[in-house]
């Protein structure tokens, strides 16, 4: 057997193998750079195009502080960005605790059997359901059956449903990535399951969980279809009531039941107008929306980076 393998190896030209491998590396790397270049150029071109078209409105400070108007040059995004923030608050408050709890339960508490397998497959399936289907669900359930109306609360709830699978999956992955040594160290000291979770596992998984939540929210911020389905308005010349009031108890939840619009809807409304000047307004709103999304993604990256450093 020894002589055989010596014969097999004796005639090989190592230099040519190495050369061939190196040229493959170069081909693959150039291909990668090319593809990356196309992707980034498209994104930058899109953004610059929007920014240039929207520049006249973007430069006008009134754009951010005015309500929409019939005259394109007076139209602003005040009600849209306020609406977006309010809807996002509802979405975060509903989706994050639910998603994290569900992920934690599935990963750490649930017994592994066919039932949890079915749940697991369906959670992944839910992540792939088109968003308009969530819109129809919300329209039938929240708006018509429960009679909740076309409100901030309903919009927040439907977006929360939409991003729940994303948060569940990312929570599970964050928890699964905690080395079992940490878990065994905690249990080995006599910690019970809750102590192990709350004192060691969740703090260690926190960066991953927060990142997942932000990625989910940055998807929700640009969603249009489900919000249109539940009947959001694209022309709103008032703000929901402020959550902070001058009278006791100083906090009001009236804004939850208020009509609203959000950035993508506002944009959609303007794009469908015939006047050319509204295209400028729409482009400007698009730039603001992209910046909002990028800012949230940047926050997610920063949290991950800081967690890796410590």
């Amino acid at each position: 057997m020894n002589t055989l393998s010596e014969n097999v190896l004796s005639g090989i030209d190592y230099a040519s193998i190495s050369r061939k491998n190196r040229s493959r590396d170069i081909i693959f790397a150039s291909l990668g750079i090319f593809v990356l270049f196309i992707a980034i150029t498209t994104l930058v071109a899109l953004f610059l195009d929007l920014a240039m078209r929207g520049a006249p409105r973007l430069a006008d400070p009134d754009f951010y502080t005015s309500f929409p108007s019939r005259r394109p040059l007076d139209a602003g995004i005040l009600s849209a960005w306020v609406g977006t923030i309010m809807v996002m608050v509802v979405t975060a408050v509903v989706a994050v605790p639910l998603g994290v709890a569900a992920g934690l339960y599935l990963e750490e508490y649930a017994k592994k059997n066919w039932f949890t397998d079915v749940i697991e497959i369906n959670v992944s399936n839910l992540a792939g359901v088109p968003s308009i289907v969530y819109g129809l669900l919300a329209l039938g359930l929240f708006v018509q059956t429960f009679g909740m109306g076309e409100t901030v609360l309903v919009a927040g709830l439907v977006l929360a449903l939409l991003i729940l699978p994303i948060i569940i999956v990312s929570t599970r992955e964050a928890i699964r990535s905690i080395p079992s040594e940490l878990r065994e160290a905690a249990y080995g000291l006599g910690a019970n399951q809750w102590q192990t979770m709350s004192m060691y596992i969740i703090p260690a998984a926190k960066p991953g969980i927060i990142t997942g939540a932000i990625v989910g929210l940055s998807r929700a911020i640009g969603e249009t279809a489900p919000i249109i389905t539940i009947g959001a308005l694209s022309f709103i010349a008032f703000l929901p009531q402020s959550p902070i009031t001058g009278d006791f108890p100083f906090i009001s939840f009236e804004w939850l039941n208020s009509g609203f619009t959000v950035m993508p809807i506002q944009m959609f409304g303007w794009v469908s107008r015939p006047q050319a000047d509204f295209q400028i307004t729409a482009a400007a709103a698009g730039v603001v929306l992209i910046i909002m999304t990028l800012a949230m993604n940047a926050l997610a990256i920063y949290i991950r980076y800081r967690a890796r450093k410590s």
Partner: peptide, 25 residues
Amino acid sequence: GMVFQKPNPFPKSIYENVIAGLKIR
């Protein structure tokens, strides 16, 4: 009590590590 093959201190301070079991109790 148990000590494992691979050192597995908690990602906390030295002090916090020593008192971990006491906090649990």
